[in-house]
Structure formats: C-alpha cells, structure tokens
C-alpha cells in the first residue's frame, strides 16, 4: 500500500473567493489515522490557514462533522484506511451556509433547538432536600436513546427536507424535544406541542430516514419524529371525538 494518500479539500475564503474550490494535499498514510488526523497534519506542516472545527477526537464533542466523499461523517471516526489508496474528498456539511473552508454556520440550529424548550418542565418543583424524582430503569430507557444526541449536525446534512426548506426544525431538535417529552419526570409536553406540531416541525418531515442512517450515536431522529406524529394525530382524534376531554 502506498505510504501517502491524497486529500481533496474544499476551500473557501469569504475575503477572497466567490465560491468554494478544491485543493489537493498529500499526507502520510497510516493505518490508525482518521481523516481529522490528516487535516491536523496539513494544518501543522503544510498550510496553517486550513480551517475546520475539532476538539475531543473521540466522537463525543460533536465538532468535527464534515462530508467525506459526500457522506456526512465525524472525521475523528473515519479512517483513511477505509478509502485508500483512492483519494478522499472532504467538504463542509451539506445544507448549511459555509463560513470558511470546512466550517459551517449552525446558528440556525441553536435557535430552533432553544424553541423546543429542551429542559425539564415541572408544574411544581420538588425541593432538592426531598431527594430525587424516582425513575425506574425502564422509564429511563424510554427516552435514553434520544438523550444521546451530540449535536454534530450530521442529520441536518443528510436531510433533503432541511436542504429544500430552511424553516424545517430538523431531526436533532425534534428528537431532543421528544427526549424531554418521554422523560417520566417531565410535564412539559403540552408546552412543546405548539412548536412541534407545526408544518415546519414534525409535519415537515417526509420520513426519508437518512438522518437515522448517518447518526453516529444511533439516536434515530426519524423514529422520534414518526412517533411524535402518531402522538399528535391521536391527540387530534381525541380532541375531535371528545372535545370536552379537556386534555
């Protein structure tokens, strides 16, 4: 196997470029290197202006999502060896505005995320001195999967609906709202309903299912959205059948 590998990296400088273009770099090939290691090598040894985000290099901080050969990936968990000896194309995540090189703007997600009220809502707070809210392992299991989201934005890059309609709330934000809705300690489902039940939230989703496929943490946002659709539809049926129900 060759001892170097070629990377074609998308570059964009807002100060000088009208549009992104590709630049090739040659880096040493090592079996234990991931795409992010190659980027770091380039930044340290060849071109310090290469711009990207990264931090933990162990798949938990969610910073280093990029497109590798067109596929949304955490670059800290994507081995060069899986592509060698062919060259590798690295681009910023799809569906987001590009700030520079491989850095995208995610302000939009942060705004939508906050709208979902992603915190525990109680009608009445129990004082801490009275101890914990009880929650059985089964109750924990009911929302645990959706609490694993690391906000890496891969699901947004995979979602064609988000690409076509920037108003769409998107997979991660909805999954995280559902994480609190399903938490046995939470009583805020009704507060989240108005945001979730809109056209640009759950009903915007057409269940492409790509978000779930690319999720590095197996959160299954597509499942979260379909489940909430069912809940919302049943609520609607209930309100029609029993308008006096009050619930």
């Amino acid at each position: 196997m060759a001892d170097t590998i070629k990377l074609e990296i998308s570059r964009y400088s807002p100060e000088t470029d009208a549009a992104p273009h590709f630049q090739s770099f040659e880096v040493p090939f090592r079996r234990d290197w991931v795409v992010l290691d190659a980027l770091n090598y380039i930044k340290d040894k060849q071109d310090g202006s290469l711009t990207y985000r990264w931090s933990c290099r162990m798949g938990i901080c969610g910073s280093c999502g990029m497109l590798v050969n067109g596929e949304p990936k955490l670059t800290c968990a994507t081995f060069l060896a899986d592509y060698a000896p062919a060259s590798i194309r690295v681009e910023p995540l799809r569906n987001f505005p590009i700030v520079r090189d491989l850095v995208i703007a995610m302000n939009d997600f942060m705004r939508k995320f906050q709208k979902m009220k992603p915190w525990l809502i109680r009608k009445e707070e129990k004082p801490v001195s009275e101890g914990e809210y009880l929650q059985t392992p089964e109750q924990l299991d009911a929302y645990k999967q959706f609490s694993m989201c690391i906000n890496c934005m891969l699901c947004y890059a995979a979602c064609p609906v988000y690409g076509l309609d920037p108003l769409f709330a998107g997979p991660a934000a909805i999954a995280l709202a559902q994480r609190y809705n399903l938490d046995s300690r939470d009583q805020g489902a009704k507060d989240r309903f108005p945001v979730l039940s809109q056209h640009d939230a759950i009903w915007g989703c057409t269940f492409v299912g790509e978000c779930t496929r690319v999720c590095p943490k197996h959160v299954d946002p597509a499942g979260a959205i379909q489940q909430y659709k069912l809940t919302a539809a049943l609520d609607w049926v209930k309100s029609v059948v029993m308008p006096w129900g009050g619930k």
Binding site: P14, A19, R94, P97, I98, V99, A105
Partner: peptide
C-alpha cells in the same frame, strides 16, 4: 462581516 456561502440545492 462574515460572508457566508450558500449552496443552492
């Protein structure tokens, strides 16, 4: 002033 590049789908 950051000048974001938006790719059309």
């Amino acid at each position: 002033h950051p000048r974001w590049y938006r790719k059309r789908v």
